[in-house]
Every structure is written in C-alpha cells, then in structure tokens.
Amino acid sequence: MNKTDLQNRVLAFIGGAADDFNALALEIFAFQREHNLPYRNYCGKRGIERWQDIPAVPTSAFKHLPITCFPAAEAVAEFHTSGTTAAQTGKHYFKTLALYDAACVPNFRAHLFPDGATLPLLSLVPDNPHSSLTYMIRRLGARFVDRLEPVTEPVCVLGTAFHFLNLFDAGFRLKLPAGSRVMETGGFKGRSREISQRELHRLIAERLGVTMIINEYGMTELSTQFYDHQPGMDCKDVPPWARVLIINPKTGQEAQPGEPGLIRVFDLANLWSAMVVQTEDLGVAEGDGFRILGRAVGAESRGCSLAAEVLQQA
C-alpha cells in the first residue's frame, strides 16, 4: 500500500469507516520502520504480529532524533514540547495536519458537546506558534482571551490547570451562565504550586459556577487527545483509532488490571511520526479506558537525590 492510500485509510478509519485496527497498525508499523531510520535502528528486523508488540518510541527520543517518516524540511508544522533549553525541547514534525485535525475536532466535540450544543470557545491559554495545544485551540475556533468577562450566553472555557489556578489565586470569581463548560488540561510542569485535579474541579465549580468540567490528556508527541468519559469521572475514553496499554515498569509487560504502570499510546493518527509512543506518565487501566495517576519521571525520590530542577537552578 502506498503512503497516500495508507493516509486515506487512516483518515477514513478516524472518520468512522470500518477497519481492522490490528491490520492497520501493522501496516503503519511496517511503513514507519521503513521510513524512520532511528526507529528502524531500534526495532531491528523482529517480526511483529500483534499491535501490542509494536515497539514504542520513548518521548525523550523526540528531543534528540528526528522522529519522522518524511524529510523534516518538508514539514508543514512542527510542535515543540515545553522546555527551557534546546536539549530539553522535543519536536514533532507534521507532513500534513489533516490527520491531526480529523482526530482532534470531532473527539473534542463529542466530549464537550455531547448534547450537540455550539458554544463560543474562549481560551485562557495564550497563542504560541509551536504549541500543539494552541494549534488545537485555534483549530477548534476558540478566541484567545486574557481574562474572562461577564457574558450573557453560555461559553466553553479552555485552559491549563495552571491558568485556572493563576486566575483563582488572584481572587477571580465570575458566575458563567448555566450550560457553560470547561476543558482543563495538564500544565503544572515546573510550576511552584500543584493541586489535585479534584481540588481544581471543585475550585472551577465554585468560582465559575460551571459543573461540566472535562479534563483533556494530550501531548506534543501525539495527534490524538483523550478526554474524561464524562464530567466527574476521571476515566479517559480511548477513541477507536487509538489504543492505550499500561506497562508494568518492573517487567516491561502489560500491567495486571488495576495495577499502575506507564502509559503507552498507540495513535494511528501519528502516521508520519511514531504510532507507538511511550509516555513518562503513570496510569491504570479502567474498563475500556484508563486513569492518569501523574508523572513518573521527576517524582520525589527516596534517596539523596537532588531533583533535576534543583540541579538546573544550581
């Protein structure tokens, strides 16, 4: 199958056409192994028969190697991870944004507007040319705002946990009209204050009068996002064109049900980069979805270690 056919097949699958996930994943694996040299070097020639066995690309690889199946110079967009120095910035190159758009917009609508409503979208996240999050926000048609103003009709507010907390720490309070909603996404990395998601949702409900709050889990290295199944449930849905495995870090194998482990994402929309991404986040499988427990790397250690950020500040 040629590249265009493969892309069309993935687009159709994301659009709802029937297909065989395993077969498609194996096709993409073969394609990526052929066209991405670092991935080929890593995978070797091993034979793979199940999508579960396809080797994952660690997110750190995006910081050091070109993880693309096309010449990076031909990219129509590149998204960067947050990081203070070049060595810490991961880059995700896009040959096309068609797959990203297809994976992003309907999935967002299905979770924020299950009732089919169309509300104005307001983003507390500032625009940033290399952020995948702000690209998504632009693509959704949101307006970037510095602050929330009183409105008469319901709105949908998008922001990172950090942005909401910043607002509330300054004493902000505004009752949004009934039917308003909030999408919040992770974003405490390197910030001075962290609170639990439950506490954040309680604050959002109290300060903005919004009860429909949905958390989004996304990352620069992926093209697909994951949303809470429904408000108040922190279990994430996995759309049909993606899979999530929880990997027990002590065995490297899939964790037992209920056992925490590292979140590994299989995202067919990442056709031109890496379909299988090994995240640095801990999670636990729950029903057909998964729950996020937090970041594993950089978690407090029991030893006489100095947190990486202390060393960076030194």
Partner: peptide, 24 residues
C-alpha cells in the same frame, strides 16, 4: 525493591538511552 515511580523512572531513562544509542 523499587516503588512504581522509581521503577518507571529507571525504565523510562533506560528505554530513552537505548533508543538513542542505536542511532547515536
């Protein structure tokens, strides 16, 4: 023995370096 976080940190670091070492 390691906590899940420690094990995850170690595996993450190991996989990251193993991936890069094949090309660098």
């Amino acid at each position: 023995r390691l906590s899940v976080e420690e094990a995850a940190t170690l595996t993450t670091l190991r996989a990251g370096y193993q991936f890069r070492a094949e090309s660098d």
